[in-house]
Design a protein around this nucleic acid. Sequence first.
DNA 1: CATCTGTTTCAGAAATTTCTGAAATAGCCA
DNA 2: TGGCTATTTCAGAAATTTCTGAAACAGATG
Lengths: 183, 183
Amino acid sequence: MTLTDLQQDFILHFGEMGNRWGINRTVGQIYALLFLSEEPLNAEQITAGLSISRSNTSMGLKELQSWNLVRQRSRPGDRRDYFTTPDDLWEIVRTLVAERRKREIDPTLTKLRELEMRGPTGDEYADARIAELRELIEMMTQFHDEMERMETERLVQLMTMGRKLGSLLDKAPKMKIWRKTTT
Amino acid sequence: MTLTDLQQDFILHFGEMGNRWGINRTVGQIYALLFLSEEPLNAEQITAGLSISRSNTSMGLKELQSWNLVRQRSRPGDRRDYFTTPDDLWEIVRTLVAERRKREIDPTLTKLRELEMRGPTGDEYADARIAELRELIEMMTQFHDEMERMETERLVQLMTMGRKLGSLLDKAPKMKIWRKTTT
DNA sequence: CATCTGTTTCAGAAATTTCTGAAATAGCCA
DNA sequence: TGGCTATTTCAGAAATTTCTGAAACAGATG
């Protein structure tokens, strides 16, 4: 398992970025390696490629699977497990956003609802602040749900509209305003 | 400095979430405390409220300032610094997104461009994968630039459109397709 | 069932991050 | 200037996370 300079550099970079993304160096590196590899790789190849321990590879792959970021494949006549990343980058982005939401947003939404459940605390400012935050997060998660449902084609259309988006919204039928958000 | 149950609970939660958000427990807690407090607080009050060391408070505030997440105020006749979070939640979200992009996306975009600069490596699959990823990130960051420019009012309109967004896009003038992305 | 290949688990080692107390710094005021 | 208050810095302590090697586990095959 020899890596090209490009692979080396890309893998090193992803390892470092891993920190900022809430996954550790090794996990980032494993992902990077799989991302650049046309062929699925098995654990042994990953271990050799990254010069890490076999058990570390195992744990890293487990972590990546918990994020739904890798696919596991088996090859006929080969008992080893092989791993890849999806070909479609949009699918990757969708997964990433969905998982981050699950880990970083949803628990807070749950907590905020729980806090509100208990009723007013006497600290009006804090109560209002929490309600406002909950509403904002709800709006954003609903929007995300909507984007999830959209075809990739549509998403691309939306994202490449640029300045046109503003004028399109002008023409949109005025809607009933339901938000109490951001007084 | 006595905290209500609500504050306690919220602060504890933010402390734990801090991990997942790439900031540490203390920083999360400081932010939570400021978020719920109507009045700006000084470092001494934060230290007492969270039962942490004075120096830890200082470092936490520095970190929050590097994220542009807190405002520093001075009070007439008081030499101490006071801190708050912005009242407008949308402003907070904008800041958060902008900062995360700066830390989590931009460095990778730079790296990808650098790798492409060096020219083809012989590994066609990897080269293509990198180009594709760069294009995707460019599309997304351009979209983000566009959203940044938008009025909050507009953003809310967009986010609350729900199912209507699809039909609106139907009516949008067809655009020249520039993307080579997602083959 | 004994053996062989491949994977996972896990206790402790190693590395990294976070936190503290003490000392340094900074600016105000008499 | 010297004393006072407020803040920051920083070396090392404490806590946490990551990584490894050894052992346990799983399941195919002869």
